[in-house]
């Protein structure tokens, strides 16, 4: 099992341990957290010095943000880094085909049913519907597509209802994010709106003070069986137990996300 750490900022390298043989750098969710070129260069110095592997994490992107990713990919090529690119937008994937990077299907494009509310009815569901809520949205044609495009690794979140990767004999490896699973994300950032009170409507923030890096918002509702965590523009839940998921040997990589709760160090999104 390969262990990795996911960071969005260089100072989070404090959390790096010798067990982590790979560093994930970047954000899947927020355009304001796309790494600067200088930061990527410094990170590359860090990983090269320690002989670590690198996965550059990309998010969904507008035309403007696609250009930023292009700049980052140029650095990887210039420095001859054999890196993975975590793809969460098909436009970024198209761009990446001009660069020698290894594409990995990110968790925004790996569709899973994650709402913890499912637990309230899960036992009442017919077996086939249960299976649908444990599986990932991977069918024979999609697998063929991934194969054609050279995508051999898929990234997934940990589900409360358990994960069923199926038995179709697909030649794929899986990475599991832990302990936070993302539930949903938005460009209409609630954290930004809260910081800019009075705010009545959610808007796309084109400037951001990135206050979410120092805080998270715990949200609860009587109909939601677990606490949810609003971190920036994304809602997560925390699922610490990974033993059950890791029984499936196709999951051969764990991506650790530093805890949200530790001020000034652990906020990775």
């Amino acid at each position: 099992m390969e262990s990795c750490i996911l960071i969005t900022r260089l100072d989070l390298l404090n959390y790096w341990k010798k067990d982590y043989k790979r560093v994930y750098f970047g954000s899947e969710f927020c355009s304001h957290l796309i790494p600067e070129k200088e930061d990527l260069n410094m990170l590359l110095d860090f990983v090269q010095k320690r002989d670590l592997s690198l996965s550059l994490v990309s998010g969904y992107a507008t035309n403007r943000e696609i250009k930023k990713y292009e700049g980052l990919l140029e650095i990887l090529i210039k420095r001859k880094i054999n890196a993975e690119l975590i793809i969460n937008d098909w436009g970024v994937f198209e761009l990446s085909r001009n660069f020698a990077v290894i594409p990995v299907l990110g968790r925004l494009l790996t569709r899973q049913k994650k709402d913890p509310q499912i637990l309230k009815i899960f036992n009442k569901l017919p077996a086939i519907t249960k299976k649908r809520y444990q599986a990932i949205a991977l069918n024979e044609n999609f697998y063929e597509f991934l194969k054609e495009k050279g995508i051999k690794r898929i990234e997934i979140d940990n589900l409360f209802q358990g994960i069923d990767l199926g038995d179709m004999g697909y030649d794929l490896s899986f990475s599991l994010y832990t302990p936070y699973a993302y539930l949903t994300t938005t460009r209409l950032c609630p954290s930004n709106a809260i910081n800019n009170r009075p705010a009545k409507a959610l808007k796309i923030p084109f400037t951001c003070t990135k206050d979410c890096q120092d805080r998270h918002i715990v949200i609860r509702h009587v109909n939601m069986p677990y606490l949810l965590i609003l971190k920036g523009n994304t809602i997560f839940y925390r699922q610490d137990s990974i033993d059950e998921a890791c029984k499936d040997k196709r999951i051969d990589r764990l991506i650790f996300q530093p805890s949200f709760a530790e001020k000034g160090k652990g906020q990775c999104f």
């Binding site: 120092d214 805080r215 998270h216 918002i217 715990v218 609860r220 609003l230 709760a261 530790e262 001020k263």
Partner: peptide
């Protein structure tokens, strides 16, 4: 209609 609390460390 969520109840929310900011947690800054």
């Amino acid at each position: 209609n969520y109840k929310a609390e900011i947690n800054a460390g």
